[in-house]
Design a protein around this nucleic acid. Sequence first.
DNA 1: ACCAGATCTATATGCGGTATAGTTGAGCCG
DNA 2: CGGCTCAACTATACCGCATATAGATCTGGT
Lengths: 205, 205
Amino acid sequence: MDRTRIVDAAIAVADESGAAAVTMKAVASRLGCTPMALYRYVRNKDGLTDLMLDRGAAEVPPAEGPWRPALHALSLETRAMIKRHPWYAELVHTRPPAGPHQMGRLEFMLTTLTAAGATLAEALTYSAMLDRHVFGSGLQEATESRVETPAAMTAALTDMLARAEGRFPNLAAWLSAPSGPPPDDQFEMVLNFLLDGIATRLPQA
Amino acid sequence: MDRTRIVDAAIAVADESGAAAVTMKAVASRLGCTPMALYRYVRNKDGLTDLMLDRGAAEVPPAEGPWRPALHALSLETRAMIKRHPWYAELVHTRPPAGPHQMGRLEFMLTTLTAAGATLAEALTYSAMLDRHVFGSGLQEATESRVETPAAMTAALTDMLARAEGRFPNLAAWLSAPSGPPPDDQFEMVLNFLLDGIATRLPQA
DNA sequence: ACCAGATCTATATGCGGTATAGTTGAGCCG
DNA sequence: CGGCTCAACTATACCGCATATAGATCTGGT
């Protein structure tokens, strides 16, 4: 029994049942021990969360090359990681990003952007901006897939239409016939908005 | 005693002590009653959260005019509301936006964008994108102001530099001398990136 | 054989939300 | 005016959570 196995178990629980299911008891019972046994290897639950988050960050490979394709790839890789681990988007906002792989990932973004001519402060702003998009999209999609089950949506719709006769025509129209590009395309589009914005602020190469 | 007073009390608690401090007991004791008394007026804690969120949305005035200034103003007004109520950014991701004022706000964005030539699906995509930025920025700033107290930052910095000799030079440089534009300017910059992106996709007027 | 420390278990505390079962008081009806 | 009813509120209890504290067990070293 060691840290690694505990984090493995915690991630397994989270992958299967969501961030809220990660309880000390759940992790312990998956390892066949008592909850208190975990505390020999982990300071407390926040510490376990930190380890989970850093493990997620470790799954994101950096990409070499010019800043734009590199950051584009990093964003997609991060998004892919979040798709494998939807809990990541729920937890990342609850803890500071102090794990070594999390810091390594940020350091990579900073290096890439400063190499392209950004100041350090600008690089941080841009990195935070990209991460907000990546994590925010992930969180929204995770939330939607949990909340917008057809039954709930239909119920909400009926309720709303009944109560607010015609006050929300656009909303009602969309709810009665949801449409739009798939999430990956939306993600890509906004990512390009952001990268375009960065491009206009970098010194011309 | 009625719903209004309960939501007032809950918001007061959250304004003073953060979202986590909003407990049924805390709200009740502020009203001088027992926690169970609240359940006569509120289905459960999620219901109270919904009411708080809708009250926040009610504080955001819509803006008339062409789509770009209108959405720009709406974003700034929403940001201003979040500054008054930092808990908003923490809670908005935990519940579906089903309150009437929340729906009204979204309906306003959809109306504005479709009037400018966007399809309904595009309008939803753009609205979600803008909200991600507004709420994400708010959340990040709220989190930072709670976590990045000088003491904690210095501790983390020292720790990190000691352990990871030179592995994160950019990060270390910034932590030892934080710099950069104020949050409002960063917010404004990214907002303009997003509005620029929308502009390129709308049919030319 | 025995001790010390590491590892794990058992138990208990306190805080959440909330179900259930009173209790109280105001109005109404005979 | 006494008693009924119902709404509003309180008291208590339960469960699940993290985790403090105090054992128990096991293991290697002398």
